[in-house]
Amino acid sequence: MPNSAFSSANLVLLALTYFFYFGQFGVLIPYLGVFLDGRGFSSAQIGELFALITLARILGPNLLAAIADKTGQPLRCLQIGALFTFTTFCCAFVINGFWALTISFAFMMMCWTAILPQIEVLTLNCVHANPARYSKVRLWGSIGYIVLTVFTGKMIDEFNSEAPIIIGAFVLFSLFMATLFVRQPPADPSHQMVTESIWKKIHSPIFYGFLSSAILLQISFGPYYGFFALYTRDLGYSGQMTGWLIALGVVAEVLIFLQSGKLIARVGVKWILFISMLLTALRWYLLAVLADHLAVLIFSQILHAFSFGMAHAASMHFIYHYFNKKHQGQGQAIYASIAFGIGGAVGNYGAGVIWQQGVGAELAFTLAAGFALLSAFLLLFISAKRM
């Protein structure tokens, strides 16, 4: 066990926590559609399930963050949330049917997404909000995503569509075990001295603009998160090839994370986000019209470096500096729950309605490109000096 929250050993444990947390994304997000398809769900049902469980992201992060900020115990909240995530996920082994799986996955999603703001707050405090040090810890989440995405794709090819559930249970148990050894920094005396209400920071044109842009970006991810693996399968790519394609995007994300601190300092949060969203629009349009060309598909996946990597790093930088320390957890939770919860739910539901067993794939990704463009456009109304 590390002797200090600021020790190298504790940062390694935080890196391991990111590895398993985002590794589960690599197991579940690309392949949940494949798993549900294997259990006989239609594309409309898959979209509805994704939308409903994504809505659960609104409650969980805000509830846990309020408790963590009030008690000053983000680590304890993280550990409890990780345990509940594992137990609720394991329900998929014994239940079936649309509503049974929807409810169990919704509870899992509520707990799972609730713990990410606590991981972010712990890490940012342990590295003293240094963007370069944060990126080096956070990139292990991307590595976990790569490793487990490729591995899960291979296991689907070797066995069947139930593989993501078996692998996911192991990953979530490992995540819980890793959190038991992490240490948190000592309480900051200034934490209790802050009297400014968080609502004053939330109710401002700057935050509304930032959050609205983030919602639109997440709406644009709907077809990708819900149907990319099914899309590539329909185009004739194997499960393993899909895993490698997804991993390629995350490799690009890792490389950009290593430079994100320097790029944010040089270019600024606003313009990093603006450029990232323009490139995201290009990415979705390429998937809409040219995904049957492997070279174009590879290029579109490299753009993940911006559509997620730089967009995430810049958003974390903005939130950390926008909210005071007492409200860090709640600020992170509001961003995660509203942007990913509402935006993700709308995007997933819309994609499910449009997809029509693959017939509407081109339309779905074209509309996604439009939402990404709108996301970039909104940022033009925010002063770069305020971000």
Rank of each mutant, 00 (worst) to 15 (best):
G236M: 13
L258G: 14
W244N: 08
I272D: 04
L248D: 01
S260Q: 06
L235F: 05
Q240P: 00
R266Y: 14
S238I: 02
Q259M: 12
W244F: 15
M277G: 01
Y285R: 10
V267N: 01
I246Y: 11
L263V: 12
L287T: 06
R266Q: 15
I264F: 05
M277H: 13
D234I: 12
R266G: 05
A265K: 12
I272H: 00
L278D: 01
G261E: 07
L273M: 15
K270M: 11
T242H: 01
W271M: 11
L279K: 03
W284D: 06
S260L: 06
Y285D: 05
Y237M: 12
W271G: 02
L258T: 03
W244I: 09
V267M: 11
V250N: 09
F257D: 02
G261C: 08
W271C: 02
G243R: 02
L286D: 06
A265P: 00
G236C: 13
G268F: 09
L279V: 05
G261L: 08
A281M: 11
G239A: 11
V269W: 03
L278K: 03
I272A: 05
A281P: 04
E253H: 04
A281E: 09
D234Q: 15
V250D: 01
G243C: 07
S276L: 07
L286A: 10
I246A: 07
I275L: 13
Q240F: 14
S260A: 13
A281L: 07
G243W: 10
Q259F: 11
V251I: 15
